[in-house]
Amino acid sequence: MTSPEPTSAPDPDLDETRRLALNGPRGAVRRSREFSRQALLDWHWLAMDGEHWPDDEQVAVFEDVLLMVSELVTNACLYAPGGPRELRLCWNTLRLRVEVSDASPEPPRLRPSAYPGKPGGHGLRVVDRLAGAWGSRPEGAGKSVWLEVPSPLDHRRPIGARGR
């Protein structure tokens, strides 16, 4: 689902932003996944505290975010001149916003899903299904493609309730 209105600047209510400079496609997907994984761990997306275990939903959202980061960065590697420029992760305990900037002014488009078994062209479909919202906005001579995911942290189970 795309957002009906692109934002012109990062949301000022977001508490923490981490940035990873990406100078082209070489190693960008791997570096972006590692950077994102560490940020999510630092923000305790999978941490066990004194009262809660990470539940299946929390683990699934963690993995989904890493997949969506990979898809956005891969698209910038494939379709933007010079590849991705920067990955930004913005977190405010209620939602995570992921942004990937590149030098292409062309907004991303969902491809028709006529051949679901054919490789390629499915990345934005994955993002469309998994993200709470996504879209793009102009940024300098290029653009930033963004997605948002609600926090999975309020879904955690108490430690004593490991079974379902």
Rank of each mutant, 00 (worst) to 15 (best):
V100I: 12
G50Q: 12
L78V: 12
R88D: 06
R97L: 15
Q38F: 03
L67Q: 11
D13Y: 14
E99R: 14
W134N: 01
R125A: 13
T17G: 08
R19S: 13
A76K: 08
E71S: 04
P105L: 08
M68R: 05
L46C: 03
T17H: 14
M1F: 09
R18E: 07
R164K: 06
W45M: 13
Q58H: 05
P10A: 05
P6C: 08
K118C: 06
N92V: 02
R30Q: 10
W134E: 02
A39C: 15
G160Y: 05
T17Y: 09
S151P: 01
F35P: 00
P116M: 10
A133C: 05
M68K: 06
P4I: 01
L46G: 00
D42K: 09
A60L: 10
C77H: 10
H52Q: 11
W53A: 07
V127Y: 01
M68D: 14
V59M: 09
E71N: 04
D15Q: 13
A131F: 04
V59P: 00
P116Q: 05
A9I: 05
L96A: 01
W91A: 01
S3M: 12
W43M: 09
S113H: 10
S101N: 04
L22K: 04
P12E: 02
H155R: 15
R18M: 08
D154N: 09
G160E: 14
V149Q: 13
L66K: 00
G142Q: 04
N23S: 12
E71W: 00
